[in-house]
């Protein structure tokens, strides 16, 4: 059976269409954070019939990219395209529910594609400059319409960027997953471990950004609360997380930060 049958081609085009819309939320419209990995991953996974892959990829990439901030003219890595592509590659490449090694391999593939997504983001912003220049020549009749046309054309450019990137990444990724499945078992074991270690890397990246200290007291306090209550007193994990939130609030209050 051919890898790219009509069903697969339709799924790729469908994902690219949805990916384009999700990508708009990133910069061009709203910024309601639907484009964040924690939302975009499960959404793509649910759409393609593999919510678990979306949840795993979304959770991992959220931790890794959440503190990559669009400050000033800096264009951060496009975690939306990475998430949508990784989830779709894992789900479509597995023809159903993606096994853990395939999820890990998809994450690795889309990580390698990050520089390309940043380049595409830069190209769109340069093209937007030309639209801004075009508004300098107002038609006498309706300046408002000229402005709206030039401004809203940015929506089309941002949409096309995400759509085209998904359309390019998905067939490459699905082909790579097919080749990956033929590799020796050691590669599969390595990718399973890779997925399980990525949340720790994400945690390290966030701590590095939020705290100047090598060993942060609040991080250790949260860890102690969770480890003691969860592992020694067997308090349900959901309650443990609520207690760490309270612990953080009290810690801030009594350490003088709220003064």
């Amino acid at each position: 059976m051919s890898l790219f049958d009509s069903h697969m081609i339709l799924a790729i085009i469908g994902t690219a269409i949805v990916g384009g819309f999700i990508g708009l939320d990133r910069t061009a419209a709203g910024q309601f954070m639907i484009s964040q990995p924690i939302v975009a991953g499960p959404l793509t996974g649910w759409m393609l019939g593999d919510p678990t892959a979306g949840i795993v990829i979304g959770a991992v990439l959220e931790l890794i990219w959440v503190v990559d901030m669009p400050v000033g003219a800096f264009v951060p890595a496009n975690s939306t395209i990475s998430t949508v592509s990784a989830t779709a590659i894992a789900a479509l490449g597995s023809h159903g529910v993606a096994p853990l090694p395939v999820i890990g391999f998809s994450l690795l593939l889309t990580t390698a594609m990050v520089p390309m997504t940043m380049m595409a983001d830069n190209v769109v912003r340069k093209m937007n400059s030309r639209q801004a220049d075009a508004t300098a020549i107002f038609s006498r009749e309706d300046e408002g319409r000229t402005l709206a046309r030039a401004h809203l054309s940015g929506l089309a450019l941002f949409y096309l960027k995400s759509f085209v990137l998904c359309l390019v990444f998905l067939p490459i990724g699905i082909t790579a997953v097919a080749l990956f499945s033929r590799l020796p078992e050691n590669f599969h074991r390595a990718m399973s471990l890779f997925v399980k270690l990525l949340p720790l890397l994400g945690a390290a990246l966030i701590v590095r950004k939020l705290s100047m200290k090598m060993i942060d007291l609040f991080l250790l306090t949260g860890f102690m609360i969770a480890a003691v209550l969860g592992q020694i007193f067997h308090v349900p994990a959901f309650i443990v997380i609520l207690l760490t939130i309270m612990g953080g609030w009290l810690g801030a209050r009594y350490s003088g930060l709220r003064r």
Partner: peptide
């Protein structure tokens, strides 16, 4: 501060 304690909570759970 709350983010850091919850992050510690993630590692502890």
């Amino acid at each position: 501060v709350i983010s850091l304690t919850v992050l510690g909570g993630i590692l502890g759970t």
